[in-house]
Design a binder for these strands. Structure first.
Lengths: 343, 343
DNA sequence: TTGAAAGCGCTAACAA
DNA sequence: TTGTTAGCGCTTTCAA
């Protein structure tokens, strides 16, 4: 079928080991034979079969990227960064969307392992993810990096964002504007993203001697619809907050819709904050106050970590933590507190 | 290192071929040995090395997906669909972002080929893409599907969307509202998306005996920023249009910003239409009139096509064409025509 | 400086 | 019903 190293060897009148040597620049080869071999390689349009190489070397030059959902802008950006950086190092990336479904994740992981993938990046693992734990227990040497989350009791390389800091900043900003009652619109209950953010919010609120009513903390999925639903619930409640802190920009935009649907104006009647700073955050009206993470850098760092452990296994694990940055825009302001909503 | 078929065979006291047989359900195996072998498989936690299988069978159960940019919502949705459907058929997908850079694409393609990938889906190929042509010329049997675009003079399976129809519908809708002067904000000059849409627009305009001024057709990249820039240029020109047709929703949202920045209200002073119906399209104010494609179906169909050709090569090529659907929302209306802008 | 040959882990004739 | 063996295309000792 396709041309192999044998074809090249025969045509060049040398042994396959010689061809292999010139192809890989390994061992001694006379300039003369090198030229001859390269000539035949060009002539025959020979391309190395990486499968055979992989079987030999036990390196596929492929990494797996496991994310909840590529449709979420944050993961799209991240994936882009990982793919680019991987490519720069000569690695391809196999994409896996789990929807936070552990069974799906398990099946992906075993599939990836069977394919002898060289390493895996887990984005936003949930704190009780059993698959990562199992994988690490079974083979502590296998290159894994956890990005933007950490499974309890599992020691791997990590790239993290101090999300609690971002949430703290946002909350403090709202408090300084004069807000005293808050609504919190989160995603999955056991996503680290939700937990971290809530922590930061609580710290800021406690510092200011204010209280966060438990009923004002709502969980859901990460879609815009969920933001709308949660916000409606908050806005129609007795403990109606003057500010809503959403766990992602998309959720925040869902909150915008809720506010509009019942005639509240942002930020006069209601301040809203997001998280992620997706492209649309500046396009909505008013522009969204949010927090931005160095997503590209996260991806780059994660790839650096896997690739370096793949190429030279190391005895220690490392962790890099990034700080998010608050971006104040038009969706937050001093509360006016003069509105009424029919409950 | 890891446990192989030999380990299983030895422990079970059978030959490797027997193990292979029970693993693949091929040929006769007595119930007794089957059970014994399976027992050992479980006990040893044996997992098949797909690399070896692939080397033998010349099938890697992996397909490549080549897209311009995962960061673009349309491709994120598409990728999601392709990945899901691929997975359903037992295929992994390797993601490649080309940024429409032909060299990058070429390098990806040769990389994928070296890895003995089973097939490739090219999303939105540009009409003069040299790589697809070269690939087909070299190996007409290799499973390829072009999605949402077609390279001239290349015969492969195709999944298309009649974008010109969507653009036609949008334009006609605007004309019926009373618009007579249009601005067109496109993406790359030689992307099929741009060409198709322009075609549809022209047909509708000609049918109505109107004219589209050449200076009102602007090209750029596909980012929000480009929409803003192009729209500003249009709105400050002498031939200021009353409606802008953008090639994507993101570009349209850029146009929103331009309109707002110079104090025009939508749709009274300016109607705007998009393309794609991304999630945010309904969240912007006013909600965006746009056109929606069955993205998921596109991905599913493309995967069906590659997978079926991978599994059973066929002598013919096929093409599936989908119709887009117009979604009318608040961003289009009757022109009021009483505004002035300092030029 | 080059070649022969032994694998990498598996499938698939072919024999028994 | 099971075992033996020859590859798949390559890298890498070890000899020459």
């Amino acid at each position: 079928m396709s041309v192999t190293i044998y074809d090249v060897a025969k045509k060049a009148g040398v042994a396959i080991s010689t061809v292999s040597r010139v192809l890989n620049n390994t061992g001694y080869v006379s300039e003369k034979t090198r030229k001859r071999v390269m000539g035949v390689v060009e002539e025959l349009n020979y391309e190395k079969n990486m499968l055979a190489v992989a079987l030999m070397k036990k390196q596929t030059k492929t990494i797996g990227l496991i994310i909840p959902d590529i449709t979420n802008h944050f993961y799209a950006d991240l994936t882009r960064a990982v793919e680019d950086e991987g490519n720069r190092h000569g690695f391809n990336v196999i994409l896996c969307n789990t929807d936070n479904d552990m069974e799906k994740e398990a099946s992906y992981v075993s599939f990836l392992l069977q394919k002898n993938i060289d390493g895996i990046i887990f984005a936003s693992p949930k704190k009780d993810d059993p698959n990562i734990k199992a994988l690490c227990d079974k083979n502590p040497q296998f290159p894994i990096v956890q990005l933007g989350g950490e499974v309890e009791g599992v020691n791997t390389d990590k790239v993290l964002v101090e999300n609690s800091q971002g949430a703290y900043d946002l909350t403090k900003h709202l408090i300084e504007l004069g807000h005293e009652s808050f609504g919190v619109v989160l995603g999955h209950r056991n996503s680290l993203a939700s937990k971290d953010r809530l922590d930061g919010i609580n710290i800021a609120i406690n510092e200011a001697n204010l209280r966060l009513v438990k009923q004002n903390i709502l969980y859901g999925d990460f879609k815009m619809q969920d933001g709308l639903k949660s916000a409606l619930q908050l806005l129609k409640s007795k403990n109606r907050p003057t500010a809503i802190i959403a766990a992602t920009d998309l959720l925040a935009i869902g909150c915008y819709q809720a506010a509009k649907s019942i005639g509240l104006s942002i930020p006069d009647d209601l301040s809203i904050t997001g998280f992620d700073d997706i492209e649309i955050a500046q396009a909505v009206e008013p522009a969204l106050t949010t927090v931005t993470s160095p997503i590209e850098q996260l991806g780059v760092r994660a790839v650096e970590m896997v690739v370096s452990t793949i190429e030279k296994p190391k005895a220690y694990k490392e962790k890099t933590v990034y700080q998010p940055t608050m971006v104040i825009r038009g969706s937050t302001g001093t509360p006016v507190n003069n509105y009424t909503v029919s409950s």
